[in-house]
């Protein structure tokens, strides 16, 4: 397979929180248009991996390349840790803890920002902006980040809303939506920035069971259109039926990755087997 098809390339990615080594050398390639499911025990580092891809956490070592943007760091750990803990201990900084970029140099910041524009992220909770209605939730970022014309982005937003089946709700406020509707709007909101890759962190875990399918349908539709997607999930059904590749993580490492048929019928590593067995019970 030629490397031009690889839209995401992660090499030897390490991430620490204080003394704990959370990501221990992740290597992962994703091809254009693939839907990758990441599974693994709670606490194994799945969320942290996605957050590193979105630069909400800054990698401590390794390389992330998405599309044509490459973000690289070699370890300079001691000094870095000191800075991190200093910032973390600082009282009265509610939002900064996880967004560490402000202590990085300008060049790195710029790259991180560019990288971020390549990816759209759907968080675990519901994160629509409650002070804007559905339509404004979608056009606010294009408007203020890219300076797009409001009328055009409205048309575009309505198309995106139609794609996620929410075109009848453009005037609603977020607190008037069900969880599934909110997640679909959030997907449209991320798509409005024309990302190359979509990241989802357990997109359906906060939803009532009957609302799960409508969100999954949006993701499979996007898959058909050729969107590259990385989905952290606890739903083996989803991993089995919707994804091209399933990745199993344990304790900050990728243990095994394979197409779903192979992963679920014939897991190679004993840790994968243990995990799948645990779920089967």
């Amino acid at each position: 397979m030629n490397s031009e098809n690889k839209i995401v390339q992660i090499r030897n990615l390490h991430k620490y929180f204080g003394d704990s080594h959370i990501l221990r050398g992740i290597d992962l390639d994703v091809e254009k248009g693939q839907l990758i499911s990441i599974i693994g025990r709670s606490g194994c580092g799945k969320t942290t991996l996605l957050r590193c891809l979105n630069c909400l956490e800054i990698l401590d070592e390794g390389t992330i390349k998405i599309d044509d943007i490459e973000l690289s760091r070699t370890k300079d750990r001691k000094e870095f840790e000191k800075k991190v803990s200093k910032i973390r201990n600082k009282v009265g900084m509610p939002f900064i803890n996880s967004i560490e970029e402000n202590k990085l140099d300008q060049d790195f910041k710029l790259k991180a920002h560019k990288l971020r524009t390549k990816v759209g992220m759907l968080f675990q909770g519901l994160n629509l902006f409650p002070n804007y209605n559905v339509l404004d939730n979608i056009i606010i970022a294009p408007k203020i980040v890219q300076g797009k014309d409001v009328e055009n982005s409205k048309l575009h937003a309505i198309k995106l809303l139609a794609k996620v089946g929410m075109e009848d709700f453009i005037d609603r406020m977020p607190n008037q939506l069900s969880g599934g509707q909110a997640q679909r709007v959030a997907i449209a909101r991320a798509l409005a920035m024309n990302p190359k890759v979509m990241l989802y962190d357990e997109p359906t875990s906060a939803l009532d069971p009957e609302l799960v399918d409508e969100v999954i349908k949006v993701m499979t539709d996007l898959n058909k259109e050729g969107m590259t997607q990385i989905v952290v999930t606890h739903s083996m059904n989803f991993a089995k039926n919707a994804s091209d590749i399933v990745v199993f993580m344990d304790k900050g490492e990728i243990i095994e990755m394979a197409p779903p048929e192979e992963m679920f019928s014939n897991p190679k590593d004993s840790r994968t087997r243990d995990y799948l067995k645990l779920l089967a019970i």
Partner: peptide, 12 residues
Amino acid sequence: RGQMEAAVSLGM
């Protein structure tokens, strides 16, 4: 805090 993160990940 998710509000800040959501905004930042939209490129703000």
